[in-house]
Design a binder for these strands. Structure first.
Lengths: 346, 346
DNA sequence: TTCTCCTATGCAATCGTATGCGGTAATTCG
DNA sequence: CGAATTACCGCATACGATTGCATAGGAGAA
């Protein structure tokens, strides 16, 4: 057995190596590479020598050093509730594409819908400063945002109309109006009078808002509210299935159910079909989000479509405008409208 | 209009600030914080003063500094083909959870199944060194791995049995055997003799291997191969739908189709149902992966189940073993077995 | 009392890069 | 032909943390 140790000799190529090979000083190399900077001219012949040396050694700047030096980190951080929820994918994709186009890398964190996770994210960003942050916060308060920004000076873009902070850009859908519209449609066009609701704890402002919109729509239609027809889930399909089982067990079940996201709506469909009931004849179901699987289930899911890809695009656009210095004013709000997509489940 | 400029004065708290407040030197603060390091004792009273100062100022170490100094970066990078493919979510989740448990952050990159994307990822890691890398490579060669490791000394874990490198740990499924098993099952149990295949370009070794396994199974059964029954997709449901349309347009279509991933299988189901045909009576379909939507479609999809969560867990475990120094030998291989899940689509 | 030897702490170099400032040679101008 | 510009480039320092080495003070031994 030879004594050959695993040779993990990382042969880091630094600017100084390039400088040596090119026969110039390290600072000259720096200036050649960051050519954008004027004020100091560089001889054409020198520039060529440096460039050749860079090429020859396969030099890449060490971004950690630049970050330390207080320059741009060329990295943004993104916080989502659950990377496993299809709703977020187009958003993440859009952000990643934009980042890539701007030569940025993306750090991703999950919060699992929990405040601890969100606070942990803030800590992360303080420990490892980034240039910008895109997030989908559920529990963060204005003070939290303030703390983050004060500590890091980072540019922030958030999803959700419940966010109010003077320097945070927000992107949001008109979801409460669309919830109301969907419920009204269920009542007027489909003649339902007993409508169930699968929501989430009201600690989620998005959940609370959609719930309020639901209540308001029912009130407007002069329909009674049955407290037993409100079930609580956790955004997952399993929880939606369970919620529907409870609803189905009622002595006098609803004829239609609205779920605040598609995952729970799809779980609800499972429960209905497993109970041998038909959709929408025995039970109509409306979801929210319009994730791809909504068109794969049978019957296809009637739902309120959000546009996560567009939302992601807008968030990234807003963020990079700030990072490029094209905008530096107060926080802006961007609405990305939703719309009711009628398919077969209601 | 006041002259109040947006005060993005990031008030970075450094170790020196802590030191000043505690009335000690900066190196003492460092030693208190990294207490794990023995050999150097610290006065109890001093330690308390430092800790109080840390608390009071809300100090967090700047990870960029540590990274530069050549210490651990506390960051790993993960490369996947497409974050929008549900197959990867459990994997990403598992990795993120493990990272989080080890106090690591995760950088994520998409490759869109393209070699350029994969090479770009390598560049990224060279520019911004990380401690470890987890990836799902489709095109990278042994030389590429070598280059990455030589340049950065990073620990690498990859998914796929086509990876062979002396210091790279790999995790893989026994997918070719399972493809063969599925085809054989289709022939023996279900009596199919004309089986179509929706694959991907053979530049994907996973695609090539599954195709080879398919051919071998057909050969073993003494069944003829019809070249027109091979369609090429790009892993997306849309491409699967299109492929099935072509297959359906054949003068003598297959009676069963195997798709190399569930997304394409689901797309194929759409095509069949849109054509007014029944599954599995008119057309049987078998997929690969067992993503959640496989149980949401009707009929439910018969498929070969992989276990992405387990794969992610194993990859992360292998990586962190190396990062913790618990293992530093040659590359290991971990097999995560697949299994055929018979549902209703075949 | 003097010499050791801990114990507890500070000093200073270092990681790779950016940049203000100073210095030199070449060029222009009066 | 001497002086004032330019045009180029290097020196040195800073960013925030880790760490080898030096050192102050006090205890114990001879």
């Amino acid at each position: 057995m030879s004594s050959r140790v695993r040779s993990t000799r990382k042969s880091t190529v630094t600017m100084r190596d390039v400088a040596t090979l090119a026969g110039v000083s390290q600072s000259t190399v720096s200036r050649v590479l960051n050519g954008a900077n004027e004020t100091i001219p560089i001889g054409e012949e020198t520039r060529q020598r440096v460039l050749e040396a860079v090429e020859k050694l396969g030099y890449y700047p060490n971004l950690h050093a630049g970050s330390l030096r207080g320059q741009k980190t060329l990295m943004i951080a993104m916080m989502v509730a659950d990377i496993a929820n299809p709703f977020y994918h187009p958003m993440v994709r859009a952000v990643q594409d934009a980042a890539h186009a701007n030569r940025y890398d993306v750090m991703i964190a999950n919060t699992d819908h929990m405040r601890d996770g969100e606070m942990h994210f803030i800590e992360s960003v303080i420990r490892r400063p980034v240039d910008g942050v895109i997030m989908v916060p559920y529990h963060l308060t204005e003070e939290d945002f303030d703390y983050l920004i004060r500590r890091t000076g980072v540019a922030v873009v958030a999803l959700g109309q419940h966010i109010h902070h003077p320097t945070v850009d927000t992107v949001y859908g008109d979801d409460d109006e669309m919830v109301a519209a969907a419920i009204t449609w269920l009542i007027r066009e489909k003649g339902h009078r007993r409508i169930g609701f699968i929501g989430v704890t009201s600690s989620y402002s998005a959940g609370a808002r959609r719930r309020a919109a639901f209540l308001e729509a029912m009130r407007q239609a002069g329909l009674p509210i049955y407290p037993e027809m409100f079930e609580i889930g956790d955004w997952s399909s399993a929880s939606g299935e369970h919620a529907m089982q409870v609803l189905l067990g009622l002595s006098h079940p609803p004829t239609a159910v609205f779920a605040v996201n598609d995952l729970m709506a799809i779980g609800a469909m499972e429960a209905v079909q497993n109970a041998g009931l038909r959709i929408p004849e025995d039970m109509a179901i409306v979801g929210f989000d319009d994730i791809p699987p909504a068109t794969w289930v049978r019957p296809r899911l009637t739902t309120v479509a959000q546009h996560p890809a567009e939302m992601g695009r807008v968030m990234a656009e807003a963020l990079f405008e700030r990072l490029r210095g094209d905008y530096s004013g107060p926080g802006r709000g961007f609405e990305v409208p939703c719309r009711l997509v009628v398919r077969e489940s209601a």
